[in-house]
Amino acid sequence: MFNELDPLLNSPVRLAIMSILLTVKHAHFNDLLKETQTTQGNLSHQLKKLHEAQYIYIEKTYKNNYPLTIISLSEKGKIAFETYVENIKKYLHLNENNT
């Protein structure tokens, strides 16, 4: 039986953001911009969607008088991402016990 995939995570950029945040404690906006290879506007839009779903936290601060945006994964986001990955594995038949 196949579970429905989280439509929020079906976007390549949002999926990349979540994947990156799963491996680090937090990431700066510019780091995500570089890693996702998207535009500032698109990244901002995708972060807003993830934030509205409470999948990520966004902290806006300053460092040396320059704006600094720090993004981190929420527990809800971590669970959503892990569920998404498990559901994808079912589609790809990667959960079968062949041992």
Rank of each mutant, 00 (worst) to 15 (best):
Leu5Asp: 00
Leu5Glu: 00
Leu5Pro: 01
Leu5Arg: 15
Asp6Arg: 08
Asp6Ser: 12
Pro7Ile: 14
Pro7Phe: 09
Pro7Met: 08
Pro7Ala: 11
Pro7Lys: 15
Pro7Asn: 14
Leu8Ile: 04
Leu8Gly: 08
Leu8Pro: 00
Leu9Ser: 03
Leu9His: 03
Leu9Lys: 05
Leu9Asp: 00
Asn10His: 09
Asn10Thr: 12
Asn10Val: 05
Asn10Cys: 12
Ser11His: 14
Ser11Thr: 02
Ser11Asn: 14
Ser11Pro: 04
Pro12His: 07
Pro12Tyr: 08
Pro12Leu: 10
Pro12Ile: 15
Val13Ser: 07
Val13Lys: 10
Val13Thr: 15
Val13Tyr: 05
Arg14Ser: 01
Arg14Ile: 00
Arg14Pro: 00
Leu15Gly: 01
Leu15Lys: 07
Leu15Thr: 01
Ala16Asp: 04
Ala16Met: 09
Ala16Val: 02
Ala16Lys: 14
Ile17Met: 10
Ile17Ser: 07
Ile17Gln: 07
Ile17Gly: 02
Met18Glu: 08
Met18Leu: 13
Met18Phe: 10
Met18Trp: 02
Ser19Ala: 09
Ser19Tyr: 06
Ser19Lys: 15
Ser19Gln: 10
Ser19Gly: 13
Ser19Pro: 02
Ser19Phe: 07
Ile20Thr: 06
Ile20Leu: 04
Ile20Asp: 06
Leu21Ser: 07
Leu21Glu: 08
Leu21Tyr: 07
Leu22Pro: 00
Thr23Asp: 06
Thr23Gly: 01
Val24Phe: 05
Val24Leu: 08
Val24Lys: 12
Val24Pro: 00
Val24Trp: 01
Val24Tyr: 07
Val24Glu: 03
Lys25Cys: 03
Lys25Glu: 15
Lys25Thr: 15
His26Pro: 00
His26Arg: 06
Ala27Gln: 12
Ala27Thr: 00
Ala27Phe: 03
His28Glu: 09
His28Gln: 11
His28Gly: 11
His28Asp: 02
Phe29Cys: 10
Phe29Glu: 13
Asn30Cys: 02
Asn30Glu: 13
Asp31Gly: 02
Asp31Gln: 14
Asp31Leu: 02
Asp31Ser: 14
Asp31Asn: 12
Leu32Tyr: 03
Leu32Thr: 00
Leu32Asn: 01
Leu32Glu: 11
Leu32Asp: 14
Leu32Cys: 04
Leu32Trp: 02
Leu33Asp: 04
Leu33Lys: 02
Leu33Glu: 10
Leu33Ser: 07
Leu33Ala: 09
Leu33Met: 08
Leu33Gly: 11
Lys34Glu: 15
Lys34Arg: 13
Lys34Met: 12
Glu35Asp: 11
Glu35Tyr: 10
Glu35Met: 13
Glu35Trp: 09
Glu35Ile: 09
Thr36Leu: 06
Thr36Asp: 13
Thr36Phe: 04
Thr36Val: 10
Gln37Arg: 14
Gln37Phe: 07
Gln37Val: 08
Gln37Ser: 14
Gln37Ile: 06
Thr38Asn: 10
Thr38Asp: 04
Thr38Phe: 09
Thr38Trp: 11
Thr38Ala: 09
Thr39Gln: 13
Thr39Ser: 15
Thr39Cys: 12
Thr39Leu: 13
Thr39Glu: 15
Gln40His: 14
Gln40Val: 13
Gln40Trp: 05
Gln40Glu: 01
Gly41Phe: 11
Gly41Trp: 12
